[in-house]
Design a protein around this nucleic acid. Structure first.
Lengths: 276, 276
DNA sequence: AATACTATTCCAACCAATGAAAGTAGCGTG
DNA sequence: CACGCTACTTTCATTGGTTGGAATAGTATT
């Protein structure tokens, strides 16, 4: 500071240093500051995390609150609002599949009484759409609304195996994420695994953290034959032989697929075309 | 351009007839055009329902799509995106209560095997947060994410009974909505019912449409002793005596309340230590 | 009482937002 | 194959909603 040079282009009073982001993007970035750990935030926290001045944040937040996207608590902090949740419940890939799959998930849940998961792919990760868990089930890593890697989870492998070839290559070429508790596979093994998943309709993963568990997942297809979701169960390692679980999971996944209009035409050729 | 000045009120070229709504409001109104019946919409439909010109809608939608609030289908139509669902899953009154309540809902579900509902109040309606239903359960009126009236549903009555006095008066003074299938109560009877609900912790409603059912609901309290949600079961009328159901519902609701920190009374400390 | 932080209000400058107009694409019809 | 119709997209001159520093008010901490 101190200097008073300014010269010709006199900023006078109102200087507008960094400006130029569309309003909507800013508003959305205010929604994005919330996370599993940050479910209730103050104005200044939101402004800081979203990277904008407090007055700007306040103004935008006011609109979001007015609409119901955010709600204000008694202590002044903000949380995600029910209205947003309401609109989001119309997401076909969110609550859409869930609504159709839920009864089957419940049936499956009653067999194992541990965890039943439903996930879809969003970009380079799996998003957990639903999770049924008994009160006394083993600890599990992911929560509903949370994200899981594609390469090191059973649902992730199923979703990856069902993605288009080009996307698979993109993922495979990336360095593995080295999740703790999961033995990371070299690229070649991942490719073999994906191929197996496509052939058998089953993916299986053992992990040791946060507890020793086995996950068995199977794909859910839509009417066009695309993999739109993955269904899986998670049980303590050793509780039930995986080869007993697999048929149950596959059957449940197929039932859901059928409900989505997937006429299981004996799948004349799983791998679309040119192979090799 | 030297426009030919027609007359005095020359619209010239660039006329800006109706302008003045904040961008965020417009963007949000684009989200609000989706409903149970309208889950996939074209650009022009969205523009029409939201009441704005197509180019404007397109520009805003593009941002929403970029962020993931909306997704575009192969046929060009737009749907609510998973990303929005993901953020919405952080809503304390949405998935928040749900996460805590779900195990208890499942226990309750196994007893009756029909419907278990979880709802919160938003404004003058109840919003359905969760619904567990068996595949062969009787038809039920409301879906998850949908809204139900306060005066003529079991969960609604519980939420209304737990609302502050002033709000209750506001609702009571409004003319009843006369839902088909539910005998509408005169104001006096509603008041008596609400009082009963507060005393017994149970609300019960019989309805004949879409099928003959009995609903039994009970309030869920938070640490401050406020009613934050309502839990209910819906069974076919005549299948199980309501006085058998009531204790089970109440017990489940209490278990959830306890889990929310409802320790009978007054929590002295609600301070969060700032970390960071 | 001083300090530090957060929340809110104010307002002049100005840039992102606006929407009519025109262009492009798809489709059914004469 | 021309024609009309509808839906979608791009362009661009105009401007009003948006912006953020500064000031003020409120609240917790030292």
């Amino acid at each position: 500071m101190t200097a008073q040079p300014d010269t010709e282009t006199t900023p006078a009073r109102g200087k507008r240093p960094k400006q130029g982001e569309p309003v909507i993007d800013r508003a959305l970035s205010l929604l994005a500051v919330f996370s599993d750990r940050r479910r209730a935030l103050t104005l200044s926290e939101m402004a800081r995390y979203a990277g904008m001045p407090a007055p700007t944040a306040l103004r935008l937040i006011a609109r979001l609150v007015a609409w119901g996207a955010l709600e204000r608590l008694d202590d002044g902090r903000y949380v995600v609002g029910v209205r947003l949740w309401e609109v989001a419940s119309l997401s076909p890939r969110g609550h859409g599949v869930r609504e159709i799959a839920l009864p089957y998930l419940e049936d499956l849940f009653e067999v194992t009484r541990h965890h039943v998961l439903l996930a879809v792919r969003d970009n380079e990760q799996a998003v957990l759409i639903e999770r049924l868990s008994s009160k006394d089930a083993t600890e599990v890593a992911y929560r509903v609304g949370g994200r899981a890697p594609l390469r090191s989870t059973a649902v992730g492998l199923v979703l990856l195996a069902g993605a288009d070839q080009q996307f698979q290559e993109t993922i495979l070429r990336k360095p593995p994420e080295n999740e703790p508790g999961v033995p990371d596979m070299p690229e070649g093994q991942v490719r073999r695994t994906l191929s197996d998943v496509r052939r058998t309709g089953i993916a299986m993963i053992r992990r040791s953290l946060p507890s020793r568990t086995v996950s068995v997942a199977s794909p859910i297809f839509d009417a066009q034959g695309s993999v739109v979701a993955a269904l899986s169960i998670v049980v303590p390692d050793g509780s039930t032989p995986p080869n007993v679980l697999a048929p149950a999971v596959r059957a449940a996944a197929r039932a859901v697929s059928r409900n989505l209009g997937h006429h299981a035409e004996a799948s004349p050729d799983a791998r679309t075309h040119s192979q090799g």
